[in-house]
Every structure is written in C-alpha cells, then in structure tokens.
C-alpha cells in the first residue's frame, strides 16, 4: 500500500473509532488488559467496561477470556450483560469477537464440569478434546491453521513462506491454550486446526465471530487478525467509500 493511502486509512480508522469506540466487555475472566494493550498498540480507541450504556454505544464488541465455561457465564449473568449483548448483536447487528472462553460461551451448551447454557449465538456445543496417543490435553502452544475462509479475519495472514530450502512452509501459527473445543456445523467454520482430530478454532455466524486461540498473545499474526476484524467493524458500519478515502487524503496532506 502506498504511504499516503496508509496514512489516510489510519486517520479514517482513528476518527471512526473515536466516535464509535470498541468495547472490551469486562466480565472478570482473564485477559482483558492484554487485549486492551494490543488494541492500543494498533492505535484503536476502546473502552474496557461492563456498563450496558457503554456496550450500547459501541461499534464492535470483544469478549476476551481465560477461564472455565460456567464461571464465564455466571460472571456475565451476575452483571446482567447477557440480554444487553444479545440485543446489540442480534437486533443492532454489531460485530462481536469472542476469544477463547469468550468464543466458547457463544455456543448453546458447554460441557465443562457439568452442563451449562451458553449465550446461544452460534449453534454448537463445547466439549472436551478427546485424549489420544501423542495428543496431550490441554492443547497448549503454537499450532497452524487450515483456513477455510480468509475473509475477513484472516485476510492479512500469510499461509506460507519460503524456507531455507526454498520450499513452502506453513507459517500461520497462533497460540492455543484450551481443553475444550467448539463443536459445530462446518458451515460456521472459518478455520480448523489439527490436533488428533480437526477442531473448529475460528467460527462465524453473520456478524458474530469467535476464535479459540489468543490473538492478543500470538505476536504479529494476532495483531493482523485484530486489524482485519476492526476493519470489518468499520466497513460493516458505513462502507468505506471513495469519498471517505479522499477526505482522509486531504487530512493527511494537512498534517
């Protein structure tokens, strides 16, 4: 991308998210600060909050998470956020990105230490990864993805790079740390990873997204995924038309 266009786009992003902030839902499970740091690094204005009024004026929502299914749902319920999130996502069509347990609770039911209801935003169940020879559970570490649909989350991710012997080598690594996986219909899956069996690790249902891995901990690949998602959020609102880019270019010249 040309330097000028890049600056224009950066300015456009900045203006858009200043008016329509991203909200990281604070429901007391895990990695809120890390997600917030990643967004700051990419230059996004965002709010960490559990207040319904903040969620209502958000352009996009992020549900971060480290924790158990039941605990995550209980925290959402005790803050009375379930209905607010459902309203914003289903009726107002706001994009949502669930990370790790934040993705798992998008399902209908979770079977971690019992059986619990999820938010029921993407049809599916959360089950324990079956143990097999050579595949220890929990699944921890950097795994590669089999990307089914690049658009929109993986649009910036390179699948292959040339290695020393000039052969193509898979490089789309992400950091995983989980014992349970999202079991759903293939039509919702954006990417699988291979761990004894194919696990759905990135899912989408219209404007609702979930990723099992931790983009906030996956170095450059993770940052690229955030960039793609928030560009999607921006385009989802008012499509990025030419006049906006020209506006941005004008502004870039003034700076």
């Amino acid at each position: 991308m040309e330097e000028k266009q890049r600056i224009a786009l950066a300015l456009k992003r900045k203006r858009f998210f200043l008016e329509n902030p991203i909200v990281i839902v604070d429901y007391d499970v895990g990695n809120i600060l890390s997600v917030s740091k990643a967004l700051s690094y990419l230059g996004y204005h965002h709010i960490v909050s559990s207040k319904p009024e903040d969620i209502q004026r958000a352009s996009g929502l992020v549900l971060p998470g480290i924790g158990a299914f039941y605990e995550a749902m209980r925290n959402l319920k005790s803050r009375e956020l379930c209905s607010v999130i459902k309203e914003e996502v289903l009726n107002k069509n706001k994009p949502l990105l669930g990370i790790c347990v934040g993705m798992q609770i998008l399902s209908d039911k979770g079977f971690e230490n019992g059986e619990y209801d999820g938010l029921a935003l993407i049809p599916g169940n959360v089950r324990r990864i079956p143990e097999q020879e050579g595949f220890r559970v929990p699944h921890v570490g950097w795994n590669t993805l089999e990307i089914i649909s690049k658009d929109p989350l993986f649009s910036l991710i390179d699948d292959y790079a040339l290695d020393d012997d000039k052969k193509e080598e898979l490089v789309n690594h992400f950091y995983f740390d989980h014992s349970y996986y999202f079991e759903c219909d293939d039509k919702y899956v954006l990417a699988y990873c291979n761990y004894g069996q194919k696990l759905a690790v990135a899912v989408r249902f219209d404007n609702i997204f979930g990723v099992q891995f931790h983009p906030e901990k996956s170095q450059k690949n993770g940052l690229k995924l955030f960039r793609s998602f928030f560009d999607f959020v921006m385009n989802h609102f008012g499509s990025l038309n030419n006049s906006d880019v020209t506006d941005g270019l004008q502004e870039a010249k003034r700076c």
Binding site: D28, V29, G30, N31, I32, L33, S34, K37, A38, Y41, I66, G67, Y175, D177, H214, E216, K217, S218, Q219, G222, L223
Partner: peptide, 28 residues
C-alpha cells in the same frame, strides 16, 4: 505490556483471588 507473547507467572501465589488479579494483569 512489553510483548504480545504468552506469559506464565509464578511465585508466592496462594489463593484464587491472587490468581484472578494476575490473570487480569495479563498473565495467561
């Protein structure tokens, strides 16, 4: 805050409340 890399923290942790605090600060 110094990098986008998985972090494991250890030392003197005795309770669930302490673990919750550390996870909130960015531990995985």
């Amino acid at each position: 805050g110094a990098g986008f890399v998985p972090l494991t923290l250890g030392g003197g942790i005795k309770s669930v409340a302490e673990i919750r605090m550390l996870l909130k600060q960015g531990a995985d």
